[in-house]
Design a protein around this nucleic acid. Sequence first.
DNA 1: CATGAATGAGACTTCATTCAT
DNA 2: TATGAATGAAGTCTCATTCAT
Lengths: 216, 216, 216, 216
Amino acid sequence: MTSDKPLRADAQRKREALLATAREVFDAGDFFDLRFDDFARLAGVGTGTLYRHFPTREALAEAVYHGEIAALCDRARRLQATLPAEEALATFLRGMVDHIDAHQGLARTLATLMADRSGALAEGSRALEQAVTDLVAAAVRDGAVRDDVGAGAVMMALHGIGAAHDRPNWRAEADGIVTLLLDGLRSPHSAQAATVSSPARTRCDTRSHAAGEGSG
Amino acid sequence: MTSDKPLRADAQRKREALLATAREVFDAGDFFDLRFDDFARLAGVGTGTLYRHFPTREALAEAVYHGEIAALCDRARRLQATLPAEEALATFLRGMVDHIDAHQGLARTLATLMADRSGALAEGSRALEQAVTDLVAAAVRDGAVRDDVGAGAVMMALHGIGAAHDRPNWRAEADGIVTLLLDGLRSPHSAQAATVSSPARTRCDTRSHAAGEGSG
Amino acid sequence: MTSDKPLRADAQRKREALLATAREVFDAGDFFDLRFDDFARLAGVGTGTLYRHFPTREALAEAVYHGEIAALCDRARRLQATLPAEEALATFLRGMVDHIDAHQGLARTLATLMADRSGALAEGSRALEQAVTDLVAAAVRDGAVRDDVGAGAVMMALHGIGAAHDRPNWRAEADGIVTLLLDGLRSPHSAQAATVSSPARTRCDTRSHAAGEGSG
Amino acid sequence: MTSDKPLRADAQRKREALLATAREVFDAGDFFDLRFDDFARLAGVGTGTLYRHFPTREALAEAVYHGEIAALCDRARRLQATLPAEEALATFLRGMVDHIDAHQGLARTLATLMADRSGALAEGSRALEQAVTDLVAAAVRDGAVRDDVGAGAVMMALHGIGAAHDRPNWRAEADGIVTLLLDGLRSPHSAQAATVSSPARTRCDTRSHAAGEGSG
DNA sequence: CATGAATGAGACTTCATTCAT
DNA sequence: TATGAATGAAGTCTCATTCAT
């Protein structure tokens, strides 16, 4: 995505070594505890090489994250092809929680990356977002899911699940938020939602939310 | 922490100067772009003094954040006293979005702090969490809201709202997630949620979620 | 000379540690074989400290060299106070050769430093040059030495002695050049010298001084 | 070294291009300010080619220097053939000063190369040294010059002239040292020189120089 | 207790040299 | 053999943190 110039064979090898090392560290959740130079040492390459391939720690993280994302997207596609839309969406979200739960290090790393203002992850996340958008859209087409709340809200919830990874009761809460999300999506357009859009009472000085939020 | 030993007058003055400076920067969203030293310089105190009062950047953030939290908790209490439980919860959550929206810097800073593994915010967040827990509990008592999903899920969603602060469509998505949350909470225990707890079909090889998640 | 701001006690200590380390390495002749960072490690200080005190390898060398120079200048003064001028000069120069001979590492290091275009040594050498100038001037006053060739020529010869430190026959040649220098200085103004000293007018735009050296 | 295996035509062309570039840079005195890579770029060849032809910067310097040396040696031979020995020597040395004066860059480069411990120049200098040795020997045979100080001392002085190239008064001092050298050489064996070999009186706390100085 | 110069770990860059193409 | 992208050792700087004053 970022670049497609064919790498020289040895350069490719070094790059792989770095990625492999990073992946391990990433999974162990030590990604941000390690000196950046050490990725080079651990991979058996020079610092210059590390910096050429991955100019920042975040760039390296993104590259690792890339593979994860691809796998998740794949799974989304498979689910969509084999299950009814609503079930596909539910299964996907439940699976996400499982995945994060199984890779604690990942969660921790993602949390940090999400907070990162450079938006190193934005790029990589786009694909994931597309997958979620597709799942939701299909469910909407099926009439199984309301159409006034976009997939963005779901993404935001996923952010929260990742960001809150160190809460003591994480798993239960993550399951809980997914349940709320799914049940919320299955609700018809709520009167309350409409209520809110009459801002006079509460506050909501400007924006009428729930209005044109179908966009991306 | 939150020590209340009386400070010498000048020490108090310096501390205030630091806090005032930090608050400004915080609100501008530059809290993490500044060298920590610079808070001292901007406040017109020495580096040592900065460190005496706030041993880490996070400690400074917490101190700033403290006031915000207190105000929000206050508001929660007021709403709970004056509105039906369900409406109080809804209004509170909508208000949170408004608040974050009005203080972009805050959102960004919170996102970073939440990701911080040192848990500098945990302390400060406890109060907020308690307020949310109270709001939810009241609504449950009213029978307006289901009892199988705790307030933790709501907190997680709030994390997501903060963490995703730089999404282009943030406001709409934040409103969306709150809508889903509220509608989800209003749903009866969903059959689907139950469905999920028979993990065999989907994947979820291990943990049975949705089982004992009533805890907090 | 360079700066006279009073250093904080600990800074002074670190600086001394660095200098002591450098002196050892210098004398061993390894001064240019060592990574610059290693001076810090050997002295037990951080790299930052090394760089603050001695921004370049040459600056460090100069500082070391400084002490040497001071000792040599002292000696020059003592000789001048106790011996007839001519003998003082001769003794001083012979002593220089002894000194360099006794500190092979020094010679090697000096050679490199002299070649260094940053002129790191120029500053430090000034004192030495002054000492030589004084010695020569005294001898001239005594009438023991000609007055048409300055101390600069002697300095240049010293450069040569240092620069050529790795010639296999160094010691004999160094003694030889000193002998020539001294005997040359004792000569009356040579006719040839006079000839040369009047090229002022033309300034050798081409090469044809002296004879008819057809070459190009 | 100085290999004479016939190069392929294009290789020869590249080599010439490199030499031409180097010569220019050399004369401008920038020889050591340039990244070694840049010689390749400036000459329009690849880095690998540069390295094939000249494995080190010094090797390149030597190649450039080679021509200079040859010319100087030629000149020495011509002078020796056409002038009385003493005059030939004097003229040669004066000419050296002129030459260096006319090629400031050369002097600077030589200074660096002389200091270089790898002795890249040793090879090239051998011829020059031989020429000087011949000139001195002839003058000794003529009885015009003493026989107790070798040509090595003269070489050392030339080193000094090159090494001290950046002294503000360089030209006058260089002329001065040559004058001293020549007048010194014309002196009979000096009593003082003999005096030196009885070190006891002067200082020389340790090493008795002049004692075993015939050695190598 | 306040100060800010000094510290040093670690981030990042440069450039001589190698080697896959 | 020529090439230049890739390499990595060594250099340099930044900045959070300490500590002598």
